[in-house]
Design a protein around this nucleic acid. Structure first.
Lengths: 418, 418
DNA sequence: CTATTTCGTCATGGCGGTTTACAAATTAGT
DNA sequence: ACTAATTTGTAAACCGCCATGACGAAATAG
């Protein structure tokens, strides 16, 4: 008890899951999956030493996971070390897959990721969704999902879940889009509009982008702020390796943090919100450009060409971002701020002013700022991976369903039994 | 796996504690303690149904806790219900106690709280600590602690830990005061200066205030922002019933959130920080009052008397708070904002402007703002209770020590055995 | 070619919660 | 009053899960 005083209390005073042997088993199955997934092919002995169980215990856990098709035995390792070589275990490349989808203002995208994290199928369709009503968009998305699922099936994968990234605020129920200004959707339950055969989850694209950064980024601290901008400006707040969602699920609305309290009016009712300075519309206006297609790319090329108006606009946007982020950093004390989404492409011209502002307003050493390697791919990957993580987090739950699925393929079963 | 997708992952990919049967036992002991603590006297059967274990299992858990002196059997209940009445269990009023301490600018305070949450001993000393070096202050505090421990001992309590609330930034090690502007302390390891016989923990007073609100406040949401101001302005960020501490432990530095980016310079290097508008010094200056003793009380009485200068100053401070909180609310989406510490006394004159600002800048319904019932008592109570919570969180750890302690009292043991 | 090291597995055991059964203590109904 | 029904707490048998210790297997070191 000396060390972690007053943390999020583990037991919980209210109603919580009973801590029984079955739960223990499930958690240990999850620990094996996570360890193998994170640290590549590993022998049973190596897993055992990593998670603190005995080899014997790990053996039984691994047996169960192999029987469920979640783990694979690659065969004996060949290390130059003394002693009998272990048998390498790897996460299965067949079996459950995570289906990620993204609804953008001007495109739909779907991909399938296997447990190893590899993208095994994908489909993109460009279409103008702005202002279109949800039904046709979701119908189109559903068709794309079915197509990707079919592709994945051909490779021996079955969908373990569907996660959809949306450019807007999503309620904590993981289904309802409360407000998506760029699509002009309000209080829409996407759950009913998505393929019924898959358990769907909907979340903000900034959140999925942040999760992608957490799981796939090159530097992966467990506490950071992932800022992403498409038309609005959102942020994913990652605390201790988990997403901070807020009571209603609206956490991370960086775009409406006041930057200059008497600044221009904002659609949210406030004045001088960050979005008025660093939002896409505002930057385009300041740069003297018309709205249109691929405006971010245009900004980047103009800035690279030395267009002073564009550079000035991006400088000012960086300053505003720096001011807003100073507040966020003071409040959250993150290890890192990551610029993702459209911002990553404009980072070279945003960063100087942003970092200067942050440094100027910070007493000690300023919070480091980095640029996401994932760029605009983040949300889609994060969505797909969130399903994969859910499988790793509770392999036992999936194993049951895997059993049904595999049972369906009588031939395979018969072959295995022979 | 349907429900909680991508939460803070339970298993952890890295090295984590092995999930063994002993751990299970410890967690279940904790669950019993929490349940009894939270829901008053309860029979074994009632506890069993609450935590989802069987009556038999709970019986053995309770036996162990009673043997350790953490739980007490009050005797048969007398409900008008059919069936054999249960035997009421309650948290013990003897045994381990939490010692809380507070280092203020002009006072020291210590109290002892038993497992039931009752204050059983306390001591306060008024003294000017501003600018005094840590050694004599801590020596004086140690004397107070010893006095309170002696008082508690006379009531059959032994100290399970010491938690110290400090007006400043504390590192995540829970010992080092990194910066306490109002005391003029820097990078001071209080651990070495506190009584060695007790495991000490040091934390920010805003954090302890927030925890007090979480555990003792009348409305107790699990996600809220607790704002407290003494001379600086700090906030405790409570997320899902736990404190958000940040990488370095500096989270919640609301005082240096930029409110007007071109405002007056601040000691932090920035400009227009909240502290420049709502900090004690700034408010006093705006109200035309000199710094002195109990300035907050003076502000309150003047405001109550209708002093326009004071009212105007508080109004402006409320506006600034509203602007800064708009940012925080957008970022965190808390269920509630609580004004604590010195702010609670000035709330009547701060709230109107604060709430107006918050409402104006929020699109939907604004985040509700409430005033802490605990007021300036918060940090001290939070500190003491944090020790109590640590005991509830891992009763097994304490039970061992309790054994030693009780073993020291040969007389009691002999009496019990007879 | 033997000694050593490491891996995976098996048999045994301890520990923890569950199941089942039962006695105790109370209320409801006749 | 007296019986039936209900609920509580405990004890005994049981099952599941991991630890322990021993063993054969498969590599390296000398």
């Amino acid at each position: 008890m000396t060390a972690p005083l007053h943390e999020a209390h583990p037991a919980g005073s209210g109603r919580a899951l009973p801590d029984t042997q079955q739960g223990m088993r499930r958690r240990n199955l999850a620990r094996v999956m996570h360890t193998v997934s994170a640290e590549g092919p590993l022998s049973r002995a190596a897993v055992a030493s990593r998670i603190g169980l005995t080899r014997a215990a790990v053996s039984t856990l691994v047996d169960e996971l192999i029987r469920s098709g979640l783990l694979e035995e690659l065969g004996p390792e060949r290390p130059g070390r003394v002693g009998r070589p272990g048998s390498a275990l790897a996460v299965s490349g067949r079996g459950p897959a995570g289906i990620g989808a993204e609804i953008g203002v001007d495109h739909l995208a779907v991909c399938a990721v296997d447990l190893r994290g590899e993208i095994r199928a994908r489909a993109v369709r460009h279409c103008v969704n702005r202002g279109r009503s949800p039904e046709p968009v979701l119908a189109e998305l559903t068709a794309l999902v079915r197509q990707v699922v079919a592709e994945a099936d051909a490779e021996g994968l079955w969908p373990a879940g569907l996660a959809v990234a949306v450019p807007g605020l999503v309620a904590r129920d993981g289904r309802t889009v409360v407000r998506a200004p760029n699509l002009d959707w309000h209080d829409t339950d996407l759950g009913t509009l998505l393929p019924a055969e898959l358990p769907p989850t909907v979340d903000n694209e900034a959140n999925f982008g942040g999760l992608a950064e957490l799981w796939l980024g090159d530097t992966t601290p467990r506490d950071f702020l992932h800022v992403s901008a498409e038309i609005g400006i959102g942020a994913a707040v990652v605390v201790d390796g988990g997403l901070l969602r807020g009571t209603r699920g609206f956490a991370g609305e960086l775009g409406h943090v006041p930057v200059r309290p008497d600044g221009p009016e904002c659609a949210c009712g406030g004045r001088g919100c960050l979005e008025q300075y660093a939002g896409e519309e505002a930057v385009l206006r300041a740069a003297g450009l018309e709205p249109g297609a691929d405006r971010v790319g245009l900004l980047a090329t103009r800035a690279a060409d030395g267009d002073e108006a564009v550079r000035g606009a991006l400088h000012d946007a960086g300053t505003a971002l720096g001011i807003a982020l100073t507040g966020a950093v003071n409040l959250l004390d993150p290890q890192l701020v990551v610029l993702g989404g459209a911002l990553s492409g404009l980072a070279p011209w945003l960063l100087p002013a942003l970092e200067a502002e942050l440094a100027r307003r910070t007493a000690g050493p300023a919070c480091p700022v980095s640029v996401s390697r994932l760029g605009p791919e983040g949300p889609l990957l994060g969505a797909a991976h969130s399903v994969v993580r859910a499988v790793l987090d509770d392999p036992a739950a999936v194993a049951e369903r895997a059993g049904e699925i595999v049972a369906g393929r009588a031939g395979d079963i018969a072959a295995e039994q022979a």
